[in-house]
Computed example of a mutant assay.
Amino acid sequence: MKQDYQPTWRKPVGILLLVAALAIYAFGVASLAGVIGGWHVLVQTLVYIVLGTVWLLPLRRFLIWMETGRWG
């Protein structure tokens, strides 16, 4: 029989850190809107696509840490 699951502190703390980091990142991207808004619409689209997906890069390792306590 498997051992009973014991929740860890990493999941609630990780969720709070993730929400805080995303809020800071979104604020940073939004603060660039004045500069990016002056560019050609196709360049704006490309920039926002890149900025909208780049935050996903560290997410895998962060979720692994939340689940296992290791960074990879």
Rank of each mutant, 00 (worst) to 15 (best):
G72W: 05
G38D: 12
G52W: 01
A33T: 12
I64W: 04
L18F: 07
A26S: 13
G69F: 03
Q44R: 13
R10H: 06
L51S: 07
Q3E: 11
G37W: 12
V19S: 03
V29I: 07
L56D: 00
H40S: 08
W65M: 01
G37A: 12
L46M: 15
W39R: 08
K11A: 13
F62R: 02
G52N: 07
W55D: 00
L63V: 15
T45R: 10
W9D: 11
K11Q: 14
L32S: 15
F27C: 03
A30D: 06
V29M: 07
I24N: 01
L51A: 12
G28F: 03
G14F: 04
R70E: 14
Q44D: 09
Q6G: 01
V54W: 00
Y5P: 03
A23S: 11
V13N: 06
G28T: 00
E67R: 08
Q44Y: 02
L57W: 07
Q44W: 05
L32I: 06
I49T: 15
A30Y: 10
I15Q: 03
L32V: 06
S31Q: 11
T68R: 10
L22E: 13
L56I: 09
G28C: 02
V54R: 00
P7F: 05
L22F: 11
S31M: 12
T68F: 04
Q44F: 04
V47H: 04
V47L: 12
I36S: 13
G14L: 08
E67V: 03
I36F: 14
V35D: 05
G34T: 11
M66A: 03
A26C: 10
K2L: 12
G34D: 15
R61G: 14
G72I: 01
G28P: 01
Y25N: 05
L46G: 12
L42V: 14
V13W: 04
L57V: 15
G69T: 09
I49G: 13
L59T: 14
W55P: 00
L46D: 09
D4S: 13
L46R: 10
P12H: 10
L22M: 15
K11S: 12
V29N: 04
W71H: 07
A21H: 01
A23V: 12
L57G: 00
Q3V: 04
W65I: 02
K2N: 11
L32H: 11
A20G: 13
W39C: 05
L18R: 00
L32E: 14
M1D: 14
Q44K: 08
W71R: 09
W71D: 07
V19T: 08
W71Q: 06
L63R: 03
A23Y: 09
L16S: 14
L51Y: 04
V54Y: 00
A33V: 05
W65L: 01
F62K: 01
T8F: 06
P58V: 01
L32R: 12
P12S: 05
R61C: 01
K11R: 14
R70S: 11
L16D: 04
A20V: 15
W65G: 01
L56E: 01
I64H: 07
V47R: 02
L22A: 15
V29W: 02
L22I: 12
W39S: 09
D4V: 11
W71N: 05
I24K: 05
